[in-house]
Design a protein around this nucleic acid. Structure first.
Lengths: 201, 201
DNA sequence: AGAAGCTCTGAATGCTGGTTCACTTCTTTC
DNA sequence: GAAAGAAGTGAACCAGCATTCAGAGCTTCT
């Protein structure tokens, strides 16, 4: 054997892959999935189009990886808050708030994760992550119902409603003044989310 | 002049166009926008692919027409209820109910209208119609707030939340038992929608 | 230094699906 | 019935974009 990858070489390759994913994420956040061609992504990462296939077997595989990384971060953050300390309604309020703030801070990425047109593989992944959001919300709601802080309700439906409501409010520009003021928007969104779950105002 | 369309001929052409739109709608409801190729749609209508271009300048134009027709029907039905008789909270309840029942009855079309991946032109149209849904909901909520039947709130945000919540609950299969029983699902959805707007249970 | 085996390149390839167009078929008018 | 013109056909065309691949350039090991 005249050649074997040294640890340094392996690290270099992993770093290259990492760099590709990061750049691809930026491109997607900027221009959306549809415009994020292999060429565009490769250009952004400073490599040739063909080199993308050193790291991923297909464009879809790269897209899925980009989606998973970004979506996982959001699930983690949301889960952290929703499963943390405090009574359920308050955790819900803080969860919505933190989710909203992060989405507003990185609007392009949030749109890509929540709603932007995407190829089927990414669509499937999105579905899977929506299920996870719903599961997180459902737990909190169930807990609130069990502890009598929230009225009796179908937690799964409430969780789906919360997921949809938050997405819609954040993703599409609102015509009200709240759209210009992030604080007002977040306040309005947390209010509506709490009402959704039947939490006392 | 040796040829001029007779009224009967004009009617025949209009009917052919109509038939094309109807068939295209069915195809879209069945297989989604992505799979609804010009060939598939033409086959469904019993004409050649090229003939589609007698009626529409492009595939996009046909898709937009299909979307508009179907979406307009839903806006009309919803508007009818939301702007009808009764106190605002009750109108909201009935509006959600009628919307949900129609969506569940024609799940494929509802999915195509609300969420299925589609080309940009259809996406733009979807945005426009979502605005109209929001406007309808916002009016009812504002009325309810003005008449003290609903608590003070940002009607635009509530309207967006309602739109998103209803869409999410209806479009994605739920894991709870409610998914199998349309009545339970509708009941759960109307409950959550009313809570969303702050209506007393 | 040189052989072996890897990564990287980017132009060529191939697929997919909308669109065109020369031709056929039907309708109208005289 | 024949001329004029429109509608209808479907195979050929073309554009866009993911994917491939033969060669150039590096790394590793003896």
């Amino acid at each position: 054997m005249a050649y074997r990858k040294t640890p340094a070489e392996i690290r270099r390759l992993e770093a290259a892959r990492e760099h590709l994913v990061v750049c691809a994420t930026e491109v997607v956040a900027d221009v959306g999935w549809a415009q994020a061609s292999v060429t565009a992504v490769a250009d952004a990462a400073g490599i040739a189009a063909g080199s993308v296939y050193q790291h991923f077997s297909s464009k879809s595989a790269l897209a899925v990886e980009v989606f998973r990384r970004a979506a996982q971060r959001e699930v983690d953050v949301l889960g952290e808050v929703l499963e943390g300390e405090g009574d359920p309604a308050d955790r819900l309020r803080r969860g919505v708030e933190v989710f909203a703030r992060r989405a507003l801070e990185n609007h392009g990425l949030a749109y890509a994760l929540l709603a932007a047109p995407a190829e089927p593989a990414v669509g499937a992944e999105r579905l899977a992550f929506r299920r996870r959001y719903r599961a997180l919300f459902a737990s909190v709601v169930e807990e609130g119902v069990a502890g009598d802080q929230l009225p009796r309700q179908d937690a799964a439906i409430t969780a789906a409603a919360l997921t949809g409501a938050i997405g819609e409010v954040l993703v599409y520009p609102l015509s009200t003044s709240a759209a210009e003021d992030a604080d007002l928007l977040v306040a309005g969104l947390t209010s509506v989310a709490l009402r959704c779950a039947g939490a006392a105002p």
